[in-house]
């Protein structure tokens, strides 16, 4: 009897999580889709954003979101993997025990603090050394890359550590160097965990709002170089939702719909990649 109650209770809890997700997606599309159909895809996929006057072009924001996310992944994945490999394979136990918690601590820093550091340090640095306004794709990518480091490092570290010790010994016994073992054996063996880490990092990068608002410049145009300012989908929603009404408000939900679609597509690609042998 007790078992039955517990089972039912857990089932309700599990389904309520799924229900929440279903409600969120339903709500976003229910608010956004009518406008997309009313304005037409031609209007939506333009760069002219004047939502109070009937122009709902969000193309530059889509491009902005994708560029910033891609940049963050390039930085986050390369540094994250290097860091993981060093921690897991080339460092002593004491170094691992000190460094890993420190890296994980990065995840606990509020994004507004990252944005603040970006404005104070990175924006002037990029402006003086690379040119442009400083508020740019590059700046946002670097900050986001640092923000997603802990996610990538901790998940891929765990999956590298989960590769049995015997694989390493077997590989060394065949005369492989440490580096060969890492590249040819451990990374392929831990691939699905590493990709899971990258997916989570990617989700965080594309969804991040506050830090991006503070350092990406929020200019409404398609950037021509990584030193140009951009505005992302999330920034637009956060910046404008406070005063938006009517079609303007619906247009912001349309932004949300596209964000949702992009995330789903990215996840599908990642899962495909993960499943392939």
């Amino acid at each position: 009897m007790k078992d039955k109650i517990a089972e039912k209770f857990l089932m309700v809890v599990a389904f309520s999580a799924i229900l929440t997700l279903a409600l969120i997606s339903f709500f976003i599309f229910q608010q956004g889709l009518p406008l997309i159909f009313k304005a037409g895809l031609h209007n939506i996929f333009s760069t002219h954003w004047a939502p109070t006057r009937g122009h709902f072009g969000i193309l530059s924001m889509i491009v902005g979101s994708i560029m910033v996310t891609a940049g963050a992944l390039i930085i986050g994945v390369s540094f994250g993997l290097a860091c993981t490999i060093f921690l897991s394979e080339f460092s002593s136990g004491t170094i691992q025990k000190t460094l890993k918690p420190i890296i994980e601590l990065l995840a606990g820093i509020p994004s507004v603090v990252y944005g603040f550091m970006g404005i104070v340090i990175l924006v002037p640095f990029v402006r003086t050394h690379f040119g442009g306004p400083g508020f740019s794709v590059l700046t946002a990518s670097i900050i986001l890359g640092i923000m997603i480091l802990p996610t990538i490092v901790s998940i891929s570290y765990d999956s590298l550590r989960a590769v049995p010790k015997t694989y390493r010994e077997g590989s060394f016994a065949l005369g492989a160097t440490k580096w060969q073992t890492v590249v040819m054996l451990l990374i392929p063996a831990a691939r699905s965990g590493i990709i899971a880490g990258i997916i989570l990092g990617m989700g965080r990068a594309i969804g991040e709002t506050m830090a991006v608002i503070m350092i990406a410049g929020n200019a409404l145009k398609i950037p021509h170089s990584i030193l140009d300012s951009v505005r992302t989908l999330t920034s637009t929603i956060a910046l404008e939702l406070g005063y938006a009404t009517g079609d303007h408000r619906a247009a912001l939900f349309a932004c949300g719909s596209f964000l949702f679609i992009i995330i789903v597509i990215l996840n599908i690609i990642a899962i495909r990649f993960k499943g392939k042998e």
């Binding site: 694989y167 590989s171 016994a173 065949l174 054996l185 392929p188 063996a189």
Partner: peptide, 16 residues
Amino acid sequence: LRRRIGLIFAIPIVLP
């Protein structure tokens, strides 16, 4: 050295 002297373990280690 390890190429010239192979080692087979008690539990077969097949690589993935």
